[in-house]
Each structure stands twice: as C-alpha cells, then as structure tokens.
Amino acid sequence: MSTIWVLGSGQLGAMLKQAATPLGLDVRPIDIESNDILPLSPNDVVTAEREEWPLTKATEQLATHPNFVNLSTFPQLADRLTQKQWLDKLDLATAPWFSIEQDSNSKHCYQTLGERVLLKRRRGGYDGKGQFWLKESENTQIPEEWKGLAIAEQAINFDEEVSLVGVRGKNGASYFYPLTLNLHINGILYASIAPLERLTHLQSKAEAMLSKLMDALDYVGVMAMECFRLGDDLLINELAPRVHNSGHWTQAGASISQFENHIRAVAGLPLTKADVKNTSMMVNLIGVPVNYNWLSTEGLELYWYKKSVRSGRKVGHINMCSGDISKLSTALTELDAQLPEPYQEAIEWLKNNLPN
C-alpha cells in the first residue's frame, strides 16, 4: 500500500495515523510550516486535517500531488461565502444570510436579517473566533476592516446544536454515524453525546442533506455537518471537509472510528456501516493541564494531544462509552470534582441528556 500523507500534523493528523496503524497503513502527518523536501511517490495519496494552509515547500509538494483527495473541495468550503453559495445552490437550509461588501451598512443588516445579526469572517475563525455580533439595540456598526471579508447571518433561536458525521467512498457509497448532540460554551465545543433515541426521527433527513452535498462535490472521505435544530427542522450552520471534533466519540463508541473511516475512504479500501456500541460521551479538554488521576474513573479513555496548555486551546479529550447509564453518571460526577469552571455546566448538561 502506498504512503498516505496528511497535510497538517495537529491532533487530527495524529489520530488519523493512530487509526491507520492496525490496518498496516503508512500515514505521515506533515507540519504545515515544514520546508522539507518530501519523498513523495506517484502512487502515494494525500489528504488533509485542515481546510487551509500556508505556502511552504512541503505544502506546495502535497497540494500539487495528483492524488490529493478532495483538493478542489477545500477552497470551496473553507470560504464561508462559497460554502453558503453551494448550500443555496443545492437548496439545503441555512440561516438567512448575505455577503458583507465594501458598501454594506448595519441598517441594511437589521432591516434584512433582524435585530441581531452575526458576522462571520469568510476565512479562518473557529471555536468562537472570527465572529462579531451586530445588535440593533446597541446600534452596533460593521467594523470597517470586516467589509468585503465577511458574511452576515440572521441570529437563530435554535433548540439544540447537532452534527452529522458521514463518510463517502470513491464508488459513491455513503455511511453515517448517529446524530450527535453538542454543547458549545463561548463558541467552543465542550461536550457531545450520541446516540440519542429522541433524535432518530431526524436521522434520515440529516443523511439526505449531507449526502446531497457530498454527491454534488464528488467528495471522498469523512465530512461533518453542524446544524441547528428547530423543532423537527435542521438548518446547516457549518461544514467541515475532514474529520471533526464532534465525531471523536466514535473512537470509543463505534466499531470503526471516523478516523479509520476517512483513511479507508481515501485509500480506496472497503467501507461498511459502523456498529455503534452504546451511549457515548465526549468531553473536550480546553486549557487545562493533564491530570492522570482522570484515569482512575472506570471506562474513561483519555486522548492527550501533547500541546502546551493555554487558555481556550484544545489540548485533549475524554471519551466514555457504556450501556450502563448509572456508570456514565458516576463517571461524570467524578470528573466534575476534577475539572475547573466552566466544566460544571458541561457535566450537568451531559447528565441531563443521558438516556433514562
């Protein structure tokens, strides 16, 4: 089997490599700042753990390789303007929006989208970054430096945030994980839980939406679709053409993790429906130092990214999977005593969403 190169060497690249090891595949994540000359072969495969990257000797080699899977998709979905245009073209529901141009003004935003409008930078921005709220009650104005570089979205009073992770093979066959319920605090994903029986009636609708997009793009690999749930309706919030934080629970909770599925797809290996084992929970570790006492909690699986710890930075995550709900509840109580604010909110949210 040829080498699979991953453009990017963060935690997603590391977990792709880990998932490929039992399959006997050689996966090599590459630092986007590298200026090394890489020993690429014509039959090698290239994938990415991120939507954008700087121009270096290494990234130029990878991005010009003929077997870079989904290369044309990245610029289309990395730019929120073209991402929204794709969704509109395919008649996939999103929040009402328009592009912020040089002559755009706040009055037009309020008249068109309502009294609360969210500006998003077209490129970059994640975990709550790259966003700016316009509030008519405060007469907020569009920052001059955002004009021509952002989109405006109507504020959505959603019921919940959910996501769907799917994988599509080179032959067009697609498979999906159950809808995941997510909690964001200050724009950062803190916790996820799946599967939930009360969301199953939305599963086919979500799969049809993501399938339509992946088929239109002739996409190969894992893609994540983040949505707002409003009653029985779903509005697409963001798309990620890669493995995604809200799918980390699949490492513990499914026979095939999102990472293995992505590797299988880009390598052209057989895909099949993953067997979902039990109720799974994921807790992101954000700006907290590693505490190996966490490992004393029964059923807890720790993934530490070996990053320097700083405020707001994702440095690891915890997975837990069990069919014994009381065991999951006990694990959450133990974690609650070992994590700082605002984890109490996340732990309580997970407890409240455990199946009865």
Rank of each mutant, 00 (worst) to 15 (best):
E298V: 10
R28Q: 12
K17V: 00
H248W: 11
P96S: 14
W249D: 01
T3C: 15
V165Q: 09
L332H: 02
V167R: 01
V69T: 10
D103I: 04
F228L: 13
E161R: 11
L328E: 00
K170I: 13
P96K: 13
F176M: 09
H65E: 09
W304D: 13
S280M: 03
S192F: 00
G172F: 08
T94A: 05
G323W: 07
Q141C: 05
G124C: 11
R116V: 02
A58Y: 02
L183F: 01
R122T: 06
V162Y: 04
W249R: 04
Q11Y: 09
Q141M: 09
T180S: 14
L181M: 08
F259M: 06
S9M: 11
Y219S: 03
Q85K: 10
G24E: 10
R313C: 06
I100F: 03
V276H: 07
F68I: 04
C321Q: 11
P29H: 08
G8T: 09
A14I: 07
D275Y: 15
N278C: 13
V288D: 01
S2G: 13
E138K: 11
A152E: 07
N43A: 14
A224Q: 10
N284L: 14
V162K: 04
A173G: 13
A191Q: 01
E298C: 09
V27N: 04
K307Q: 10
E138D: 11
R264C: 00
C109S: 07
Y219A: 03
Q76K: 12
T73V: 14
S106F: 09
E345I: 02
G287C: 04
T47I: 02
I142T: 00
D336P: 03
M282R: 03
P178K: 12
S34M: 09
A48I: 05
S280H: 02
D88V: 03
K135C: 08
K307C: 04
L179Y: 00
P270A: 15
T272V: 09
I156A: 00
S322L: 05
E52R: 13
L328T: 00
L149N: 15
V266N: 13
P66V: 08
N293T: 08
W86H: 13
I30P: 03
V266Q: 14
A206M: 12
L217N: 10
